[in-house]
């Protein structure tokens, strides 16, 4: 009987701590938003973070986009060829990239490339008691450290996703038109006929913006709540990638259902 009640208590404890975690997450989000005036007052801080998060991620995003485009071109050609409609390859590549792969794969890479470094940086600041020292000097660490990083990530993510999609479309064009020899006119005109600026391109940008907010916030939250030990920081970094990826994939399903269901 006591074993059973312990199980039930453990379940309850897990549920309560999950809700508490969500609450702490939402409160950190609110605290960052409330202190976002620093972005306008000291834009240099945010620019530095855009440089750190965005520019340094360009290489991995560009190369990944190129190869995803190559593979989409090859696989799409293989399937479309059976139905004699290879010209639709451009449409297939552009729609898959702008709607899904661009925002989602970029967000996954972003969690791995930029999210981990944000978590580790803040976790180590906390372990080295730099954040506590800031508070002693009456500098608000959320204002000075978290808010610029948050907005840096939110600005960088849609840019990276757009670059990913563009490079991917060019990769699909290279495989389809240059290597396989699909008619370039049909390739582009089918693409332009089927990709809508608002329904597809703009919705993709909205998706990438949402993913940027979520992934950056998860990374900051994990660093902010990490235990101030080497092990705690390493765990927080792992959790950033795991929860970031899960949040992106789950949200992607929700957003897709909302945007493209009609």
């Amino acid at each position: 009987m006591s074993a059973l009640s312990q199980r039930i208590a453990a379940l309850g404890h897990g549920f309560v701590s999950m809700i508490t975690g969500l609450g702490a997450f939402a409160r950190l989000f609110g605290a960052i938003l409330a202190r976002s005036g620093v972005v306008l007052r000291r834009p240099r801080l945010t620019a530095q973070q855009v440089h750190f998060i965005g520019n340094h991620s360009l290489l991995i995003i560009g190369v990944s986009g190129l190869f995803v485009g190559f593979v989409l071109g090859l696989q799409g050609y293989y399937t479309l060829n059976r139905y004699g409609s290879e010209e639709a390859l451009g449409l297939l590549v552009a729609l898959s990239l702008t709607r899904e792969l661009g925002p989602v794969v970029t967000a996954l890479l972003f969690a791995g490339r930029a999210g981990t470094s944000l978590t580790a940086e803040i976790g180590l600041m906390k372990a080295g008691e730099q954040l506590a020292a800031m508070e002693v000097m009456a500098v608000d660490p959320i204002r000075r450290v978290l808010a610029p990083r948050f907005w840096g990530g939110v600005i960088a993510m849609p840019v990276l996703a757009a670059v990913f999609s563009m490079v991917g479309v060019l990769g699909g064009w290279f495989v389809g038109v240059v290597l396989i020899g699909i008619d370039p006119g049909a390739f582009w005109s089918q693409m332009q006929g089927g990709v809508d600026v608002i329904d597809d391109v703009l919705n993709g940008v909205i998706k990438s913006l949402v993913f940027g907010v979520v992934v950056t916030l998860i990374a900051l939250h994990q660093g902010w709540t990490a235990r101030a030990t080497p092990e705690g920081v390493s765990r927080a970094t792992t959790r950033t990638v795991v929860s970031g990826a899960l949040a992106v994939l789950g949200l992607d399903f929700l957003l897709t259902a909302l945007m493209f269901a009609h």
Binding site: H51, N55, T98, V169, Q192, G193, D196
Partner: peptide, 25 residues
């Protein structure tokens, strides 16, 4: 830093324009 950030943002705008004009309708 400012220069590279500006370049980064410009690249994003170029990519969006490409998606809207070349890939989109």
């Amino acid at each position: 830093t400012d220069f590279w950030v500006g370049l980064f943002i410009m690249l994003g705008l170029v990519a969006l324009a490409f998606l809207a004009l070349r890939a989109g309708n």
